[in-house]
Design a binder for these strands. Structure first.
Length: 410
RNA sequence: GGCGAGGUUCCCGAGUGGCUAAAGGGGGCAGACUGUAAAUCUGUUGGCGAACGCCUACGGUGGUUCGAAUCCACCCCUCGCCA
């Protein structure tokens, strides 16, 4: 099956350039393509996953990914559908973020010899000469046309600085530069990148007379309308295990809406379509089987098989009462701390399960606090050494937040 | 640069001297119901404290007042119209 057809079947293609030439282009021979990621945070999150998975499919099909970190463009800020300018980042921040992103991406892409390459556009953008740039790049852009691009039009109402207005030119120049230096012929991006990508393919055609391509991935939303990127219950879901534990990552997937199961299996796992069709054909509670597989596979891709299985086992233990609790995130309490006097309120706050003492009391009043499966009626109850001994005490706040409090080793 | 409108708690948005930790909505959280789903209903939603209470919060800084989100002065920022 053709790569493009595979991507389309999985729902990974939102828009594409060219009129039919793209399919053949991807089959003819291995190509070099690029996908840009702005290094504006220290971790990727769920919103970055689709382009990343798409890139992974493409690499598996023999193409070579260039991962572009926008060290320079992050300073400018992409105006695409955003309503505020971004805070300024220092070069140090960008470099730190870039390294973090690469680490996370190695789970998805092979950065070995001949494989994916990480590039920072600060390399070629920071020292541009303004007049040169205007003469060689700026001349190819029509302001009239730029104003008709959706992402710009959307910002015309709230305002858009000249700085941000230039973003499109810089991103287009990236494409031109990568075409020249790496023979990069395709750019992959999120749906919001369409305008920037098309501007890039146009620029390469005008300057180099070459036909290059662009693909955008859909902006995925859940069935309840939430963007994957932000505002998930309990905060954003990050790929960095320090920010979102593999257990919580697994839990995110298993808690997905019934209606999203098929879509998510296609987008976020490498399972063959036959398997996916079978899993999504279940009904009612039977869909839970598919969700467990979704959660296991998606977690395995992001954190490795071992972590994923531990997360699954912990989930089974907590929710179904089967098996061991090794994978449940644990939290160490020193015996000394207990000795100084510690109540359940302290314990829940210090474990990170609850943000404040008031919150613990509120939860207790509403009947949402548990220790070892028993509802807590008095959060002021002292914590004893015995209760933490051995396997520790399983803390639970609400239906789904768990943590295991254990006594520190020393 | 001129004129006009505005900056309120996570978001939107009411509030024009004390009854205001601040209406209402959204979102979040919890409980019930369930399948760790959806929908629905109920409760809850700044921090510390067992509690009288204390602290922090209405763009910023000063001021008026027994008392200010609310009045005054200056400053910063956003939006609109004009130049």
């Amino acid at each position: 099956m053709e790569l493009l057809a595979v991507l389309e079947e999985r729902g990974m293609v939102y828009q594409k350039t060219g009129t039919g030439g793209l399919g053949k282009f991807l089959e003819d021979r291995p190509r070099v393509f690029y996908a840009g990621f702005d290094a504006t945070a220290e971790s990727l999150h769920l919103g970055h996953l689709v382009p990343l998975m798409t890139a992974a499919h493409m690499q598996r099909a023999g193409h070579r990914p260039l991962i572009l970190v926008g060290g320079a463009t992050a300073l400018v800020g992409d105006p695409s559908f955003r309503n505020t300018e971004r805070p300024l980042l220092s070069q140090d921040d960008v470099e730190r973020y870039a390294e973090a992103l690469r680490t996370q991406m190695t789970r998805f892409l092979d950065f070995g010899p001949g494989g994916a390459v990480l590039l920072n556009n600060a390399r070629w953008l920071m020292d541009l000469n303004y007049i040169d740039f205007l003469l060689h790049v700026g001349r190819h852009f029509s302001v009239n046309r730029m104003l008709t691009v959706d992402s710009v039009k959307a910002r015309l109402e709230t305002g858009l600085s000249f700085l941000e207005f230039n973003y499109m030119l810089l991103q287009s120049f990236d494409f031109l530069h990568l075409y020249r230096t790496w023979n990069c012929e395709l750019q992959l991006g999120g749906a919001d990148q369409w305008g920037n990508i098309v501007a890039g393919t146009d620029l390469v055609r005008r300057v180099e007379g070459a036909e290059v391509y662009g693909i955008t991935c859909p902006l995925v939303t859940t069935s309840t309308g939430e963007k994957m990127s932000k505002s998930q219950p309990g905060g954003a879901v990050w790929l960095d295990p320090k920010l979102t534990s593999p257990y919580r990552y697994y839990q995110f997937w298993i808690n997905s809406d019934d209606r999203d199961l098929g879509k998510f299996l296609r987008l976020y796992t490498f399972l063959p379509m036959d398997t996916i069709r079978e899993l999504e054909s279940d009904t009612g509670a039977g869909l839970r089987r598919g969700k467990e597989i979704l959660a296991l596979e998606a977690t395995a891709i992001a954190h490795g098989r071992k972590e994923a299985e531990a997360a699954r086992d912990a989930s089974r233990a907590l929710f179904l009462g089967e098996g061991g609790l090794e994978g449940v995130p644990s939290f160490e309490v020193s015996g000394d701390r207990v000795g100084r006097g510690m109540t359940l309120v302290d314990l829940f706050v210090e474990s990170g399960l609850c943000p404040s003492r008031g919150e613990v009391r509120r939860l207790a009043e509403q009947g949402g606090l548990y220790t070892d499966g028993k509802r807590v009626t008095d959060p002021g109850e002292p914590v004893t050494l015995e209760s933490l001994a051995g396997d520790g005490l399983i803390l639970r706040a609400g239906k789904k937040r768990h943590c295991r409090a254990v006594l520190a080793a020393d």
